[in-house]
Amino acid sequence: MTDDREILDALREEGREDYAFNLLVRKYSERLYWHIRRAVIDHDDTDDLLQNTFIKAWKYLPGFREDSRLYTWLYRIATNETINYLRSKRLRTMLPFNGQERAACLRLTEEQGFTGDEITRRLYRAIAQLPPRQKMIFTMRYFDELKFTEIAAIVNRTVGAVKASYHQAHTKLRQILDTED
């Protein structure tokens, strides 16, 4: 796997930008794809958001100050893109903030490319009922197994706030799943 340092150095070298960008896409596209897809479910929406993430990265990489690690920075762009998309979608479809109707709309069928078992289906339907930011924090911790400090850097919140948000999400999911039983 290519080192981030090598990618950044190549990006700043004239004539090697495209090569460096290919390395960047190759290294991070799958991780970012799944990070987005778990939240938006649909493949086409995920594809749009992933492309927007990389286009923004390409645009702003020359000004990247390396205050944070490259993957933290990319995760931040992807997370912001996804949260904005989920918020705008909710406004467009006029679905209420209460996620029960939203979950009902989330059929998680094979047409949507869902291949998981019943337990996984129930979990994803429950996750769909979380508010966008809470949803992203939960999936980063639960599926990507990122540290709370890394998540805090990605969502630009304190570690305490991220832990509280994760705990709230966990409690909500437990309540939703218990109610269904």
Binding site: D47, Q112, G116
Partner: peptide
């Protein structure tokens, strides 16, 4: 633990992304 990747991805999607 539920499956981490319970969705299908079109064939060759990541290769064509670049």
């Amino acid at each position: 633990r539920p499956d981490k990747y319970p969705f299908t991805v079109p064939e060759g999607y990541f290769r064509s992304l670049e």
